[in-house]
Computed example of a mutant assay.
Amino acid sequence: MNAQAKNERPETSGKETHFGFRTVAEEEKVGLVHEVFEKVAERYDLMNDLMSGGLHRAWKQVMIDWLNPPRGERPFHLIDVAGGTGDIAFRFLDRAGPNAQVTVCDINRHMLGVGRGRAEAKAYEGRVEFACGNAEVLPFPDRSFDAYTIAFGIRNVTHIDRALKEAYRVLKPGGRFLCLEFSQVSVPGMDRIYDAYSFAAIPRMGEWVTGDGAPYQYLVESIRRFPDQETFKRMIVDAGFGRVSYRNLTGGVAALHSGWRL
């Protein structure tokens, strides 16, 4: 390697993190995750269908039910993070009142492009905006939003604690935090069945549908590396939130965590 090429290599902090079951430099993870979602952007909902057996649709509805957005005239502004395709945003707008609006923030421009196209098809212009940004450093002022949602996204960030603190920062006092994420199965025996399905079936189905099983292999591994329900609850409390609780969905295959900026 010549001196010029060597000098062009990005500097690293020397710190490591996980990318699925692999250990990588912290600086690499954002790019690796970006590549995964760039590959699956057009088939993101199909990906979630494969990983949840279609149950993600019901889980997202539970999320919106628990958020219970106002249906009257009161203005209400939701930020949905890592929700580039707009799935949560559109469910929210279908439920909320006429003065509700949503900002979708995602680090991946391909995902945002899918969301914009869907918003135009659903005639949601004026009620939804799309912004490119990192969950760990959100490009919004303090106390900007009435609620913050993130579905199947927080396990992909490099520093979960930073993302939680950013969620707290951008919420107004009294604002609601809701996180839907794959979690740890709590039903004895069901965990073995779920593991067998996840590791054997999902990457193969992903390869059959998209021609590439690698993104699905990473996503299955990332679920196993994510903190269990109680550990994640403590992380939310450590970020400053109060009245933190969670609900297990489908025996803990997924969990929905809630907290409030008091």
Rank of each mutant, 00 (worst) to 15 (best):
D146P: 03
F241T: 05
H56Y: 08
G126K: 06
A41K: 07
A82Y: 03
I236D: 00
C105F: 02
G83S: 09
P98H: 11
P227D: 12
G133Y: 07
A58V: 15
G113K: 08
E42H: 12
F145Y: 05
G211W: 14
P141W: 11
G174P: 12
D94W: 03
K122F: 13
P10S: 09
C105N: 01
Y168M: 09
Q4N: 08
Q61R: 15
G86T: 08
G115I: 06
Q61H: 13
A25V: 11
N108M: 13
E38S: 15
E8Q: 13
E166L: 02
E35T: 14
G259D: 04
G83T: 02
N156A: 12
F199Y: 14
E125Q: 15
A58K: 15
V33E: 12
D49F: 12
V102F: 01
N7L: 14
V104D: 02
A41F: 06
D238A: 09
D195T: 10
V81C: 08
F140D: 01
S183H: 00
V244E: 05
A200N: 15
R192D: 05
V253H: 04
R204D: 10
G54T: 10
V157G: 02
V220D: 00
Y246P: 01
L112N: 06
G72K: 11
F19W: 07
R192Y: 11
G97H: 11
K172S: 05
I236Q: 01
T231P: 04
E166H: 02
G83D: 04
E125Y: 05
A167H: 05
A131C: 14
L178W: 04
V244I: 06
R116S: 05
A5H: 09
L164D: 04
A163M: 08
H34R: 10
F76T: 09
E181W: 00
V62L: 11
M205T: 03
R169E: 07
Y246C: 06
I223W: 02
V102L: 03
T103A: 04
H18E: 10
Y194Q: 08
A131D: 05
R243A: 15
E73F: 11
G213C: 11
V170I: 13
P98A: 07
K15S: 10
G86K: 09
R176P: 00
P188M: 06
I79M: 10
Q217D: 09
G14S: 08
I193M: 14
A200G: 11
A254W: 03
L164Q: 04
M190P: 01
M1H: 07
F140N: 00
M111E: 01
S52K: 08
I79N: 03
S198L: 08
H34A: 14
A167C: 10
A151N: 01
M190N: 01
F19E: 02
N99K: 13
G206D: 02
T23I: 04
S258F: 13
